[in-house]
C-alpha cells in the first residue's frame, strides 16, 4: 500500500544548511572553518579547527582570505555559521583584550621556539610594550632577537596573541603583519598607550624608568612605572646605569634578569 503518510514522511527530508555542512567538513584535517568578527582595525577573519583557533587575518574579501589561508596552511577555509562552544565563549573577549585567556589556540604547525615566543608575548598586558630582546631573554634565548622578530612576523593569530606589543628597543614600532603596517600603532593607541610620549623618551635614549622612592626600575610602559609621579621618576639609558644607581629590576615587567 503506497499511502499518503509514507509519501509525506519522505517529504520531510530536507537539505542541511551549507554552513553546517562546512562545519562538519572542517572537523577533518582537510579544512578549517572560519567566521568573521569586528575589531578596532576592521573585519577579522578567524579560522579554527578541532585543536583551536588556527588563524586570525584581514582581507578585502572572503575569497581573498580563503586563498591566502590555503596558500599558507595547505587546507581549505570554509565559512561556518557557528563556532564550537569553547571558542565561542572566549573569542570576543580575547579579541577585545588582546589576550588569549582560555581561548584554545592551534599552534600545531609551529616550532617549539615559535610557540615559546607566542606564549611569552601573550603575557604582555594591554597598553604596554616590550622590546624583542626582552622576549628573547625571557624564553632563555637571549641571542635570538632576530629570530623572535621572524617568529612574531609569522604569528598565525595576531590581535589574540598581541605581537603588536613587541617593539624595537630604540622605540620604533617595528614591523607588523596584520593588514596595514600602521595597524600596530592603531592597536596600541586603542589600548591607551601614549605613543608620542613613549617615543620621545626612546629618542632621548631612555630605556628604563625608575622610582626614587622605591629604587625599582621598569620598562617605561609598565603599569608600575606609570604610577610613579613625574617628580620621583628617574630615567636610565641601560640596565647597568640603573643598577649602579642602586636600583633593582621590577618583578612584574622584568626589565632585566634578576641578579
Amino acid at each position: 500500500m503506497t499511502d499518503r503518510l509514507i509519501t509525506d514522511l519522505r517529504e520531510l527530508m530536507t537539505a542541511a544548511p551549507k554552513v553546517a555542512v562546512n562545519a562538519a567538513i572542517a572537523v577533518s584535517a582537510v579544512a578549517d572553518g572560519y567566521v568573521t568578527r569586528p575589531s578596532p582595525l576592521g573585519l577579522l577573519f578567524v579560522a579554527f579547527n578541532e585543536r583551536g583557533v588556527s588563524a586570525v587575518d584581514m582581507a578585502d574579501s572572503p575569497a581573498e582570505f580563503e586563498r591566502r589561508f590555503n596558500d599558507l596552511y595547505g587546507r581549505q577555509a570554509l565559512p561556518v555559521g557557528r563556532l564550537p562552544a569553547q571558542i565561542e565563549r572566549h573569542l570576543d573577549t580575547a579579541i577585545a583584550t588582546g589576550k588569549p585567556g582560555k581561548l584554545p589556540l592551534d599552534f600545531s604547525g609551529l616550532t617549539e621556539f615559535s610557540v615559546a615566543v607566542l606564549r611569552k608575548t601573550a603575557e604582555i598586558p594591554g597598553g604596554q610594550v616590550r622590546p624583542y630582546g626582552w622576549v628573547a631573554r625571557e624564553i632563555g634565548k637571549p641571542g635570538a632577537v632576530r629570530a623572535v622578530g621572524s617568529a612574531l612576523a609569522r604569528n598565525p593569530v595576531p590581535v589574540v596573541v598581541p605581537c603588536h606589543r613587541v617593539v624595537r628597543s630604540d622605540g620604533h614600532l617595528g614591523n607588523y603583519s596584520l593588514g596595514d603596517p600602521d595597524n600596530k600603532r592603531l592597536l596600541l593607541e586603542a589600548e591607551g598607550l601614549d605613543l608620542v610620549e613613549y617615543q620621545m623618551l626612546s629618542d632621548r635614549g631612555i630605556r628604563f624608568t625608575g622610582s626614587e622612592t622605591t629604587n625599582i626600575f621598569c620598562h617605561p610602559t609598565c603599569h608600575h612605572a606609570r604610577r610613579t609621579s613625574p617628580g620621583h621618576t628617574v630615567e636610565f639609558r641601560s640596565e647597568q646605569s640603573a643598577r649602579s644607581a642602586g636600583f633593582r629590576p621590577c618583578m612584574v615587567c622584568r626589565p632585566a634578569a634578576a641578579a
Binding site: 527530508m13 553546517a20 555542512v21 562545519a23 562538519a24 578541532e50 557557528r82
Partner: peptide
C-alpha cells in the same frame, strides 16, 4: 550523508539548532 543526518536529527529533535549541533558532533 549530511542531508540525511541533518533531516533525521531535525525530525527526531524538532529544533534546527539542536539538529545542527548534533550533526557537527556526529562528524567530529
Amino acid at each position: 550523508t549530511a542531508d540525511g543526518i541533518f533531516s533525521g536529527s531535525l525530525r527526531m529533535l524538532g529544533d534546527r539548532r539542536d539538529a545542527e549541533d548534533v550533526m557537527q558532533e556526529t562528524y567530529s
